[in-house]
Simulated assay, not measured.
Amino acid sequence: MSIALADAGGASVATAGNAGKGAFAYCSQQYRVLFGAGTSGRLGEEAERLGIKRALVLTTSEQHDLGRRLGTGLSDRLAGLFTGARMHTPVEVTNEALRVVESRDIDGLVAIGGGSTVGLGKALSLRTGLPHIAMPTTYAGSEMTPILGETSNGIKTTQHSQDLVPDTVIYDVDLTLSLPPHISAASGLNAIAHAVEAFYAPNANPLTSLMAEDGIVALARALPRIMVAPADPGARRDALYGAWLCGICLGAVGMSLHHKLCHVLGGMFNLPHAETHAIVLPHAAAYNAAAAPEAMTRVARALHSANAPQGLFDLARQLGLPCALADIGMPEDGIVRAAEMAVRKPYANPRPIDHAPIEQLIAAAWRGDAPAQD
């Protein structure tokens, strides 16, 4: 893979064992990645390459102006702007956007924004088969994955399909320069979560582990610099590069307890996605630490910390992120309900997922405690 203007691969992996046990298989999925500064200027070229004649630009309401500005790069291929994307990809929002697609004879999608907007693009592309260009403005990484999390009636469910992977991803460092530092920090911790779980995934392999460690290194180096100098192009490039690597990991191997918990908490209580990841991650890492010692060693090394869970917790505090689920809107009486939901159909995980310790984990994250390892 290359970070120049080039094709880059996501991956699906099947193994006869864990990467640490020697045997693995790696299957690359081909999609096009443009990485650099100013690459958003090639949007029209990419739309033409994909045969798009009537594009619908997708954004959140907050990024309406950005969507309109970048949409001009499509020239007469721009057929509409939908600004209703929301976090956790509510099914009712997707249905509303689908009506716009059908009424305007749309033949291509351009998602400009973070995970909420990219998720909407995936949902529409899955339902319609239309080509999808993603232009990330955060470090969420969902543009690199064949995964879609949708919410209906307070329950978030996950789908996996190679049809969900965008046809082209345009990473433009310039689009991240105005991303507020606190959003950058939360989004970056969300990306790091993908890499942490990639180390101990049951289908981990040497390539994804290399990307995971390099991704954490790049983000841990970049995020504190962004807090001090948000317009530092070098820090922004490092963060976007790290997010790309972590996103590939998310798409390449299965995720575990941490992502299950965040899906449950986000869907049940409508919590902000990135902040939820930042708060839960140290506790999920502590829960798995004894069962995944090699993974914790690599995480600690990437963070320049003696202890992986504590290093993750300290990084979040250094970045000024909330450390308690209570601070982002989760009610205390939701702890038991969330634990009950989390142990249903649990993801593969190095340590068995049992109700009592999971409830303790969620309670500690709700209070904002430092991570406690068994």
Score class of each variant (00 low, 15 high):
residue 2 S to N: 11
residue 5 L to K: 06
residue 6 A to I: 01
residue 9 G to S: 12
residue 11 A to M: 13
residue 12 S to K: 10
residue 17 G to I: 01
residue 17 G to R: 12
residue 19 A to P: 02
residue 29 Q to H: 13
residue 30 Q to E: 14
residue 30 Q to C: 09
residue 32 R to N: 06
residue 34 L to I: 08
residue 38 G to L: 07
residue 38 G to V: 14
residue 44 G to K: 00
residue 46 E to N: 10
residue 47 A to Y: 05
residue 49 R to P: 02
residue 50 L to I: 10
residue 56 L to C: 04
residue 59 T to W: 07
residue 67 G to A: 06
residue 70 L to Q: 14
residue 73 G to M: 03
residue 75 S to F: 01
residue 76 D to K: 00
residue 76 D to F: 00
residue 77 R to Y: 05
residue 80 G to L: 03
residue 81 L to V: 12
residue 84 G to C: 01
residue 90 P to Y: 08
residue 90 P to W: 07
residue 91 V to K: 07
residue 93 V to W: 02
residue 94 T to H: 02
residue 108 G to E: 09
residue 110 V to K: 01
residue 119 G to S: 12
residue 122 K to L: 10
residue 126 L to I: 02
residue 132 H to D: 06
residue 133 I to C: 06
residue 135 M to H: 02
residue 139 Y to C: 07
residue 141 G to H: 10
residue 142 S to T: 15
residue 142 S to D: 03
residue 145 T to H: 04
residue 147 I to M: 13
residue 147 I to Q: 03
residue 148 L to R: 03
residue 148 L to S: 08
residue 152 S to D: 12
residue 153 N to D: 15
residue 153 N to P: 00
residue 155 I to D: 14
residue 156 K to H: 10
residue 157 T to G: 02
residue 161 S to Y: 12
residue 163 D to S: 07
residue 166 P to M: 02
residue 170 I to Q: 04
residue 170 I to M: 03
residue 170 I to W: 02
residue 171 Y to F: 15
residue 174 D to V: 07
residue 175 L to P: 08
residue 175 L to W: 05
residue 176 T to M: 12
residue 178 S to R: 13
residue 181 P to S: 14
residue 182 H to F: 13
residue 184 S to L: 01
residue 188 G to I: 07
residue 191 A to D: 11
residue 191 A to P: 06
residue 192 I to T: 09
residue 194 H to A: 11
residue 197 E to G: 05
residue 198 A to I: 01
residue 200 Y to S: 04
residue 203 N to L: 08
residue 205 N to L: 06
residue 211 M to W: 15
residue 212 A to T: 07
residue 214 D to T: 14
residue 224 P to D: 12
residue 227 M to N: 03
residue 227 M to W: 00
residue 228 V to A: 15
residue 230 P to S: 13
residue 234 G to D: 15
residue 235 A to E: 05
residue 239 A to N: 12
residue 240 L to S: 11
residue 246 C to F: 05
residue 254 G to I: 00
residue 263 H to L: 06
residue 269 F to G: 05
residue 272 P to T: 08
residue 275 E to K: 13
residue 279 I to M: 02
residue 280 V to W: 05
residue 286 A to M: 04
residue 289 A to Q: 14
residue 289 A to G: 01
residue 290 A to P: 00
residue 291 A to S: 15
residue 292 A to P: 08
residue 293 P to W: 13
residue 297 T to G: 13
residue 299 V to W: 04
residue 302 A to P: 06
residue 305 S to I: 10
residue 315 L to C: 11
residue 316 A to D: 07
residue 316 A to W: 04
residue 319 L to E: 10
residue 322 P to F: 08
residue 323 C to A: 14
residue 325 L to C: 07
residue 326 A to Q: 15
residue 328 I to G: 09
residue 330 M to S: 09
residue 334 G to Q: 10
residue 336 V to F: 00
residue 340 E to H: 13
residue 346 P to D: 12
residue 348 A to D: 13
residue 350 P to F: 04
residue 355 H to G: 09
residue 357 P to R: 03
residue 357 P to H: 03
residue 360 Q to P: 00
residue 362 I to W: 04
residue 365 A to M: 05
residue 368 G to D: 08
residue 372 A to S: 08
